[in-house]
Design a protein around this nucleic acid. Structure first.
Lengths: 336, 336
DNA sequence: CTGAAAGCGCTTACAG
DNA sequence: CTGAAAGCGCTTACAG
């Protein structure tokens, strides 16, 4: 049981009684071919189920029309996806890339380091890269920025970044959350998240700045979380509640997942949400809407994000200039 | 600002003072090259940052070492991923594919139809296909099975399927759920899900069969859901509660998302979960664990699933026989 | 508008 | 163990 010999352009040329270049032109829609010739060639190609070998095509072209997408698998743990937001983003990016007829090369966890990615570029496996999740991959990204590969990152802009970033307006997200909590008369606010992540640092700063405008005294405490997982957030929450001197009356969590963990912990500890504590999350995961109580959160449109990431990356691939950009953030008020 | 001319194997051959075939052999780890020669070639290649052009490579080889993954975007709605389970699966598949050094070509929603997929295969874009989510794509899959492309599907086996399937043991999952509900002394059970999906049909049958063994009279009602989204599940739940003659005391939902919707609706309608109604979900989404109340559900190991899908697909790619397979299901007892 | 020729960057017999 | 030659399946000047 062997594969039938695949049909080549030569075969189609012979069958259509034209030359190979004519077949090539007809198939690529070149104007340099008579309409009748084109129709005839296309008909023969269709009849024999011919498809241009894309590897030969890519070999001849400089462009591969492939974009490599690297996910921050640091947010993963074996057997457990800890924050699904990154997949919302992937869906947005995949949609935008599809619209431009770009192939998507998805990196697996094993092939997510600098060497492999660099190799993909040098071996003409992709024209450019999209990094979903900055997380703690600063080193990788800095390394990458001294290579010539075009790439763009979902995350936040840092001063020493030499690469372009698309992200939600984290600072404004923080301000929105702060204003919301202040409006609920919350005065002892807890910020939850790893502020060494640039994105999360901005959210915290936005929170602090909104609080600074409040005429009454407000405290902002920061609880650093070192993992993206719910379990770890829950452990931190329990630990915090067990030793906190005063209980916060407002929480701004860096993700909906963390918000859920804190709500859970507060409820178990006998506090009512939102009676005793108001909580604001981030990302507007679909599960945030139907958590009980439904979580007030900051939304960022992942389809817009995908579009912007792709648009900017394609400029870089085309050797044009581009700059970092932001997706607007929006406060979604629900029950907490 | 033009691209530097990329380095080719010819360049490396010249620089290393050997022939091109020797470079090729050294780089591919052929035993037909003296260790010292190999080392020297590798050193030169490394020094000049050379990477073999993978398009040329794929053109020469019959194999592309690329697997195309097609996600059932039917479970999506613009701006809204309605059931994140498919992404758990994607993570599992991506991990397994990475272990075998296979590239992953991810289909975008726009390029997810038969013609495009067929084109990918004929144009040597991929050696095989993994379909994540059978859903209502039966037509596509049947079409595909009469092409020569190797592929495998996450889903359930139907009698008239001519293709291989890997799925959770849905029937057993249904039995587990049924036994759990019966054990809680539930006697009016509602099954929620679109039973025309083969996977979901099996769960229902498992439920029915477990109930049939109960000596006491038990009713099983079926509520068909036509969408995967939470919102639509919630609407159905509310509608059901508003017109149901008797309220069920046990619910088995086809997904955790749907389970959440029903719990939500029940609570709003004044019923206690699990006091008045026991609920079992499916998939064990990470959010199921920290929903309030935490959801009792059926777990399927998505990493195991990825491994099995990939293992079976690779057999097909290698022209070997394979058969459909199952992932064990496990009841995860939580609060509901 | 069409075709003959060259070449993209590899790998694989083949010969030594 | 190594190299000269051919060829994978295309596209792109070039010539007409």
């Amino acid at each position: 049981m062997t594969d039938k010999e695949p049909i080549t352009m030569d075969d189609i040329a012979r069958l259509a009684r034209v030359s190979k270049p004519t077949v090539s032109r007809a198939l690529s829609g070149s104007p340099l071919v008579r309409p009748e010739t084109r129709e005839h060639v296309l008909a023969v190609a269709r009849q024999y189920g011919y498809a241009v070998n894309r590897n030969a095509q890519k070999l001849r072209h400089k462009r591969t029309n492939t974009i490599c997408v690297s996910i921050d698998y640091g947010s993963f743990r074996k057997n457990h996806i800890t924050d699904p937001f990154i997949f919302d983003l992937l869906a947005g990016v995949s949609e935008a890339l599809g619209e431009l007829d770009q192939d998507i090369l998805l990196c697996s966890p094993k092939h997510n380091g600098f060497d492999f990615l660099q190799q993909v570029y040098l071996s003409r496996g992709a024209d450019g890269f999209i990094f979903l999740g900055q997380g703690h991959r600063e080193n990788l990204l800095q390394q990458f920025s001294s290579s010539t590969a075009p790439f763009i990152v979902w995350g936040a802009k840092k001063k020493n970044n030499r690469y372009c970033v698309v992200g939600s307006d984290n600072y404004r997200g923080g301000m929105l959350a702060g204003n919301y909590l202040l409006g609920k008369n919350r005065r002892q606010i807890l910020f939850v998240g790893d502020i060494s992540h640039p994105e999360i640092g901005f959210r915290r700063r936005g929170l602090e700045d909104s609080v600074a405008r409040c005429p009454e005294p407000v405290t902002v405490d920061v609880l650093v979380l070192n993992s993206f997982s719910f379990e770890s957030a829950l452990a931190s929450a329990n630990h915090y509640l067990s030793r906190a001197t005063g209980t916060p009356d407002g929480v701004f969590a860096y993700s909906d997942t963390a918000a859920m963990a804190f709500i859970y912990a507060f409820q178990k500890a006998g506090f009512a949400v939102p009676g005793d504590v108001s909580v604001v999350g981030y990302n507007d995961l679909s599960s945030a809407a139907f958590f009980h109580p439904a979580i007030t959160t900051i939304r960022q449109d992942t389809y817009l994000a995908g579009e912007l990431l792709v648009k900017k990356l394609m400029r870089l691939v085309d050797q044009k200039k581009t700059v970092s950009g932001f997706i607007p953030t929006e406060l979604i008020v629900r029950e907490t």
